[in-house]
């Protein structure tokens, strides 16, 4: 199953502002809930998200328990050169998902 969905334009003109949309599959268990029997459910959330563009970090976020399941993050950047956009999510219990996509800048 796909764990992450990333939408980036395949091509862009140099200097163009592009939108990047990301969605990651995760329950985002807050740690504040209890089971029907009263047992606390331990926290299990995505902690950080980072995006690098040809190895340079261009965006990062810290996620918190109040963020809903399957977090959606979108942001903008300037298309400077052709290359790889890499996305990385890290979380509790060793959660780690990464994906990357190539953009051609003309």
């Amino acid at each position: 199953m796909a764990n992450a969905l990333v939408t980036v334009p395949k091509t862009a003109r140099r200097g163009e502002i592009i939108e990047i949309k990301t969605l990651v599959a995760h329950n985002m268990e807050t740690g504040y809930r209890r089971t029907e029997r009263g047992v606390p459910i331990t926290r299990d959330i995505v902690r950080t998200f980072t995006c690098t563009y040809n190895g340079v970090e261009i965006f990062s976020a810290e996620l918190r328990p109040a963020i809903s399941a399957n977090p959606y993050i979108s942001f903008f950047t300037v298309a400077t050169e052709s290359g790889m956009l890499a996305f990385n999510w890290l979380g509790d219990n060793g959660f780690a998902v990464s994906t990357s996509t190539y953009i051609t800048v003309t």
């Binding site: 199953m1 939408t7 599959a25 959606y72």
Partner: peptide
Amino acid sequence: DSANPATF
């Protein structure tokens, strides 16, 4: 679809 978690 890229913002709709049901896509998963």
